[in-house]
Design a protein around this nucleic acid. Sequence first.
DNA 1: AAAAATCGAATGAACGTTCAATCTAAGCTG
DNA 2: CAGCTTAGATTGAACGTTCATTCGATTTTT
Lengths: 189, 189
Amino acid sequence: MIKVTDKQSAILNTALKLLVKNGFHNTPMSLIAKEAGVSAGIIYHYFESKDDLIHQLYHEIEVKLSQTLLDQKAEQLEGIALLRQIWLNAYAYYVAHPNETLFLEQYKNSPFYKHWEGSSDETGLLLSRKIEQAITEAKIVELPLIVLYSLTLGVAMALAKQQIAKIIELDDATLQKIADAVCRSVQLV
Amino acid sequence: MIKVTDKQSAILNTALKLLVKNGFHNTPMSLIAKEAGVSAGIIYHYFESKDDLIHQLYHEIEVKLSQTLLDQKAEQLEGIALLRQIWLNAYAYYVAHPNETLFLEQYKNSPFYKHWEGSSDETGLLLSRKIEQAITEAKIVELPLIVLYSLTLGVAMALAKQQIAKIIELDDATLQKIADAVCRSVQLV
DNA sequence: AAAAATCGAATGAACGTTCAATCTAAGCTG
DNA sequence: CAGCTTAGATTGAACGTTCATTCGATTTTT
């Protein structure tokens, strides 16, 4: 178990905020240090390099996200209802955590992201298994899991980004309608 | 009408390739110049700055994309058939132009992208009008245009990115099945 | 007093941009 | 058409800045 000190998470939190605001390459380490209230040098006590800091941030967020998708409410459901709940959880998380969301997207569209980095944390694996189970239970159109992901959670992410950017504002009724649409797309006719 | 010289497009083409390969900030102007077979200084004859180069590249690609989506085949269709064709055109373009696609995504997830930059070229506007027309003709679920975009073209982009990354390989039958799913999601039940 | 944490000035490399010098080509003149 | 002129195109070395990273000194903790 890695011990996360106050200072370390102060650095991570500040870095998240600044990296999203200014972009990865317009965020000097010195600025992160300043805003986090630490010296520039100490960052290198906790992280090997700027890249390492960014990678760790990514993993931290991925783990938190997995845990959120499969919450208590979702645990009790199965089949299409489970998928629907996971979708709503995903959307809620993205909207409630704009910095995390924008960071994930920027990371995944940067040369940092290696596609072979599959989620290796326990919750991530549990989530995958749950979803595969839901698919066999419900009448879902036969498509690769990753395609189903794009049709569902990918849409949630895209919408959340627009909500974050204040391009759209979705009331609950509209959100339910979209959830319906998403479920309809993957269900067998 | 801006005259595009050979040298200018050589710079743009090379820049596209390198920016996608190395990321915006790991691509020095000097490298672009070298690979394009020109001197570093001349880039500043055609472009105000590195940022300007990137912005121009973006606009060039956006225009080409708009033109591709509304091709001759699509022009003759209407309603849901039109939407389906546009979707297939989008997917085909993305897969056939990996560099352009990855560039668009990197750009849109970087601080370069300002959300208020609506497509101002003629084809883009024509495309918007055509799509709105298709929506009124077909029985489409009542959702903001931008939400419908995420449910359809957004999915095409996401899938294409995975195909480009060699994560998936979609045969034509599967692609048709996905197009069905996408159309199903936006059609009224 | 030993070890760990922290500081922040210094280092050195990378890179966007500039500019004086050179080259190219097209126009002009006799 | 040869010679002259000139404006634009092109070069690449040099500049100045930014920034990730280092490290010896200092403080805090054990």
